[in-house]
Simulated scan of single mutants.
Amino acid sequence: MTITLRAGCTVMFTGDSVTDCFRLETEESLGYGYPLRIAGEWGLRHPDRPVTWLNSGYRGDRVADLENRWAADVLAARADVVSILVGVNDMGWHTLDPDGHKIPVEDFEAGYDRLLAPLAEAGTELVLIEPFLLPIGGVMRAGRNSVLIGEAERKEWRADLDPKIQAVRRLARRYDAHLLAADGMFAELAAGTGSERWAADGIHPTPAGHAALAAAWLRLVA
């Protein structure tokens, strides 16, 4: 099963900082990450099939944040294809509710399901990109701040993220969506070169990491 991008169709990328990639801080509306690389490569390969590319990603977003803006940011665009990458901010490292509890996987999956249901009903093609985490210690960016983390934190985050990755896979099957298995892809790439080549802090891709995401995304396209 592949995505069909016809001339004149619209593709919407949405999610957290990995998708955002400074789009609101620059004049490049697609940001400087994988959405821009996808759009550029598509234009090079298929000048006869122009596509409108949109990006509504926002750094720090969780599923709940996407849901709050879903109607205005995504549904109103009536895109033919919607590509979603979200989940790492629903992991325990970043998002605790006011009572200090991690976001349960059941809440994550239910909220994600509410995002997908109206798109599926409208016949939108869906691309779900797994959230991912590479095993790197040291300093990690958290918004505008940096935090020092160790192996214990990474193991705790991995234990929290893995069930959410499984939830994304279940939703992909439920909605007959295209799944980009990014967590496994990066683990395989890192096994040969080291994690720092793909995501310097384990979460935010390097230029090579964004290129890998873009190449994997384009492999889903007819």
Rank of each mutant, 00 (worst) to 15 (best):
P205N: 10
E109Q: 15
R173S: 15
A77T: 13
M91I: 01
L189G: 03
R197A: 10
A77W: 06
S29R: 10
S195L: 00
M185R: 09
A177L: 04
E125N: 12
G87C: 06
A77L: 15
Y112K: 08
D73L: 02
H178K: 13
V88S: 14
F186G: 00
R6A: 14
A214C: 05
L213F: 05
A122M: 12
F22I: 05
A177P: 00
G57Q: 03
R158D: 15
F186V: 02
T19W: 02
L213Q: 09
G31C: 06
M91Q: 13
W217L: 11
A212S: 13
A208G: 05
L218Q: 14
E156S: 09
P118G: 09
K164V: 03
D90H: 14
W70H: 07
V127Q: 10
L30M: 07
H204N: 01
A167G: 11
G192R: 14
A7N: 10
T10D: 07
R49L: 15
L218M: 15
G123W: 11
L44Q: 15
V11W: 00
P50C: 14
A72I: 03
A215C: 03
R144D: 15
A211I: 00
R154D: 07
T14H: 08
L54E: 05
A187C: 03
G40F: 02
R37K: 10
R170W: 08
G150H: 06
A199T: 01
S146H: 09
G40R: 15
R219A: 14
T124L: 02
L115R: 02
Y34D: 07
W42E: 04
R158H: 07
A142P: 00
P118Y: 11
M140P: 00
Y32R: 15
L54Y: 03
R62M: 14
L134T: 00
S29D: 13
F132A: 08
R174L: 13
M1T: 10
L128R: 01
G40W: 01
R170V: 01
R144G: 08
A216E: 14
L66I: 13
A159K: 05
S195D: 03
V81A: 12
E121F: 10
R6S: 13
V168A: 10
L116D: 04
A208S: 10
L179M: 05
G209R: 00
P135T: 03
R62D: 07
R197M: 07
V51A: 09
D80S: 12
S195K: 02
